[in-house]
Write a protein that binds this DNA or RNA. Sequence first.
DNA 1: GGAAGCTGTGAATGATGCTTCACTTCTTCC
DNA 2: GGAAGAAGTGAAGCATCATTCACAGCTTCC
Lengths: 202, 202
Amino acid sequence: MAYRKTPAEIRRLTTAKERLVARATEVVAEVGWSQASVTAVADAAGIAAGSVYQHFPSKAALAVEVFRRAAGREVEVLGEVLHGPGGPVERLSRGVEVFARRALENRGLAYALLAAPAEPAVGAERLAFRRRYRALFAEVVREGVESGALPAQNGEITAAALTGAIGEVLVDPLGGPEDGAAEALLADLTAMALRCAGAPTA
Amino acid sequence: MAYRKTPAEIRRLTTAKERLVARATEVVAEVGWSQASVTAVADAAGIAAGSVYQHFPSKAALAVEVFRRAAGREVEVLGEVLHGPGGPVERLSRGVEVFARRALENRGLAYALLAAPAEPAVGAERLAFRRRYRALFAEVVREGVESGALPAQNGEITAAALTGAIGEVLVDPLGGPEDGAAEALLADLTAMALRCAGAPTA
DNA sequence: GGAAGCTGTGAATGATGCTTCACTTCTTCC
DNA sequence: GGAAGAAGTGAAGCATCATTCACAGCTTCC
């Protein structure tokens, strides 16, 4: 009998899978979901198309994994900022700025996560993550309202609006070339977000 | 020689094309772009699949026409409200409300126009129309700033944010079932939009 | 060393759905 | 009525890709 995987072998497989996800993420960031065929992704990872199916049961599963990893990092970062130190308004402002800054620093990926046409499975994942963004924003808004820093409002609506507004504001810059106006954009964007939540203007 | 089209024949062809676009719009509103195959659309219009190509050079061209007609109506309506009588803030408020109300009254179509997965040609059209929405909002915001009704701000950003915010807020209600909370939603949405533009709360 | 079994390969398979085309049906006009 | 030609048909053609599979190459462990 020769069928027990050695730790080294397990590590090799895991590494191969990690590498596949990483390369697939790069491909998606560069050419978008619709152009990221199984063949293209496999080529980028240096394996045969068929080998993808050693790691994932379908292309959709791989795509979902790519999305989750990348979007998960963003949720995590945003959560840390929004749950971090400072008053609700300050945290909201910093959260919006950090989120937008990270997107602008990694345009291709940000565009893929936010807006690029994608297969249904990825679309569903996108929806799910948008809900998570909303939930994070809603929490801070609610806190702000309770503390009196923000006026009474429907926090869910404001949170959804913030999510949509940030995405929409970023779509054009993310699609176009780097234009050097990033800092001005960030300032305008955070100002808008604060107005949106009803924070008194500084 | 028998190849001159009579007026009646021309009318018949035009009517057939109109009918095709109308039925295709219904199909898209019901099942979304991805399920609206040429066969399904042709069936709905009561013609053969091949006949679609008498009117449009490709499926994409038909889809684009469907999108343009439907989205064009919304741009027109929004434009009328935003250019109508009243102060900038009042018009902005009414514009948001009218836009959202129309979407909620025609959910399937609104979802298809705003968010449903679609082929690249439709995606491009969607982007183009979003720019038109933004331009309309930007105009009113600029007017409001000039008249002093709104605080100084980057009108383009606010306009993009309004477009994104409205879309995002509507996506969930449009996807789910009618829940009867439409009026409350509209009130919260317009309140958010006014805050977003910096209008003093009523 | 060598049997057993897992991983990797990439061409073949299969599904989907747009588009074409040979043919039929309808309209025009003498 | 009938010739000429357009519109309409729908099944076949075709392109695109995800997925499979028979086979080759490796790793494990006695």
